[in-house]
Nucleic acid binder design. Structure first.
Lengths: 96, 96
DNA sequence: ATTATATATAGACGATCATCTATTTGTCAA
DNA sequence: TTGACAAATAGATGATCGTCTATATATAAT
């Protein structure tokens, strides 16, 4: 299985989502494909900062990416989120 | 409701668990009360470092604390963990 | 080809963080 | 009360992180 399909370990997952800016991006991309430009317009940080955070989410396997012409679209991988939360629960609350 | 009973916001929860040392402590305290001394013996960091991480978990409301004589015992609050994971899922994967 | 637009990358800077040693605080036993 | 043990706190240091400006890369339009 390639790295790109491996779920992040609990620590990697936690680090990836442990930032306000990233969580805001995650919510914005939760249920729709969003271009980087749209994400930037929705945030109060610069475009390079958004790209930086998108790279972290991408490296953690938490977003899907699609290229279309000049634009790049991102969407949160909700199944991956659910899976990671499940791993967290199983790791730290095995009996419930 | 006092702060000590409020669940941490998704960002606070993620930050609290976004560290290898803390996750190791969390696993060790998952299903049993553990004294600080026992936790230190189980880890490869110094006692003050363990105390530091315990304070972070305590501030995030993720552990229960009990004093007994000279010793202090910690235990992971598994229900809180489950609840936080649920909030995460609901926040970032509302439809699944 | 040149220009404009979209996104990524490089490098710098200040803030936060994890860890350490040294010390303090609190509790029990002699 | 003195000494021993348990845990927390203070302060320092190096590493990581989030953000910025400047620049590079890629694609489309003129």
């Amino acid at each position: 299985m390639p790295d790109s399909q491996k779920e992040p370990a609990p620590v990697e997952f936690a680090k990836a989502i442990a930032d306000n800016t990233r969580q805001k991006i995650m919510k914005f991309c939760c249920c729709n494909w969003r271009s980087v430009t749209d994400i930037v317009a929705h945030m109060r940080v610069t475009q390079p900062t958004v790209s930086h955070h998108l790279a972290i989410l991408r490296d953690a396997g938490l977003v899907d990416v699609r290229h279309e012409g000049k634009q790049t679209f991102y969407r949160l991988d909700r199944k991956r989120i659910v899976n990671c939360c499940g791993v967290l629960e199983h790791t730290f609350a095995p009996d419930e």
